[in-house]
Amino acid sequence: MLTRRIFGWSRLLGAIVCLVSLTHRMLWGMGSQTLASDNFFAYLTIQSNVAFTALSLVAGVIALRRAEDPPWLTSARALVLSWTTTAGLAFSIIVWQAGLRGIPITVPWSDVVLHYVLPALAVIAWLIGPGRRTASWRVLPFVLLYPVLWGVFTIVRGRFIGWYPYYFLDPRQVSGLPEMAISCLLALSIFALVATSLVLLSRVPVRLAPWGEISPSPQPAERRRPATAGRRHATAGR
């Protein structure tokens, strides 16, 4: 199917764009005094986009070779897309909060691509892409497992090196443990909300027609009474 192949190549293109953006973000960040080379991969955004790159390569090859994604691929896409989309939403909140605190944040083009462009296009592809199966609700706890493990590791690591990737994880930049706990719970709720939305979107009956137009799922044809049945009733009434 032509549209399936188009989406397959688009997945491969998305992996390349993500890889280029990650490389630019790393080189751009190395010129900053606030980012050491050993801290670049400590960001949840970077880790989730590395996973996005690898998964997009695999998903692209599968789309070019098979008419339908296997169930495990749909689950993996739901997981990774939940992480990257939430990272983009969290980045927007951080930039907004930094502005309120009078802290300037420079956003390079690679950050825009990683936090906004790729997640938005991936959500659109999730909704209308051919060959995707219905996502299972079982992915929800696994969506939350990664940020919980990442958060615990990051807080423990920050105690030893004195550096945290996000201000709300740093005890020195928040009012205390209650504010940190509330911020973490808010972040987890966003992860859960995004994952729930993706599972629900996978159940929306939207498909692509052969030439790429979006069309609703076919409805069952209206049943018609056979003409012979009408004749029999008429004959019986005589």
Rank of each mutant, 00 (worst) to 15 (best):
R159I: 02
V58G: 06
F153D: 10
I161Y: 05
T3A: 13
V152S: 09
L169S: 04
S75M: 06
M30C: 08
W211K: 15
A42Q: 12
L201G: 03
V194H: 02
S92R: 10
I128H: 06
V17H: 07
G151K: 03
T85R: 00
I105T: 11
R25M: 13
S56T: 03
L27M: 13
A63F: 05
I6R: 07
N39L: 10
A76D: 09
Q173P: 05
Y164T: 00
R132S: 09
E213T: 12
I124N: 09
V123F: 07
L35Q: 11
F168E: 01
P226V: 09
P147R: 04
I16E: 06
H115V: 03
R203T: 10
V20W: 08
G131D: 06
G237E: 15
P220L: 09
R25S: 08
A221W: 13
S10D: 02
L177A: 14
S215E: 14
G14T: 14
V113G: 04
P226G: 13
P71R: 11
A90I: 07
L55A: 04
P165D: 01
A76I: 02
W28P: 03
G88C: 00
A229F: 12
R225V: 15
P210T: 10
A229L: 14
A221E: 15
V204K: 09
S197T: 09
L208A: 09
L185G: 03
L188T: 01
D38Y: 11
L193Y: 08
L35P: 00
L186K: 02
M1H: 13
T34F: 12
R203C: 11
Y166I: 05
S32D: 12
Q97W: 07
Y167C: 05
D69H: 11
A63G: 01
V156A: 10
Q97F: 05
Q47R: 09
S202D: 08
L22W: 04
T45F: 09
P171Y: 08
I46L: 11
L185A: 14
I182A: 15
P71Q: 07
F40H: 06
R157Q: 10
L144F: 06
P178I: 03
W28G: 03
V107S: 07
P165V: 00
T23M: 10
L144P: 03
V148A: 08
A63T: 01
Q33R: 13
D69V: 02
V123T: 08
S197P: 00
V17Q: 05
R159P: 01
I62G: 01
A234C: 06
Y166C: 00
E222G: 08
A192K: 02
V50I: 14
A221G: 13
Y164S: 02
G88Y: 02
L2Q: 15
T134W: 00
L198F: 00
W150S: 07
I190M: 11
D170Q: 09
L114T: 05
W72V: 09
W109H: 07
W109P: 02
A63N: 00
G29K: 05
T196N: 03
V206H: 04
P130L: 05
V20N: 07
V20K: 10
I16F: 10
W137Q: 06
R159M: 11
C184F: 13
Y116K: 08
T106D: 12
M180L: 15
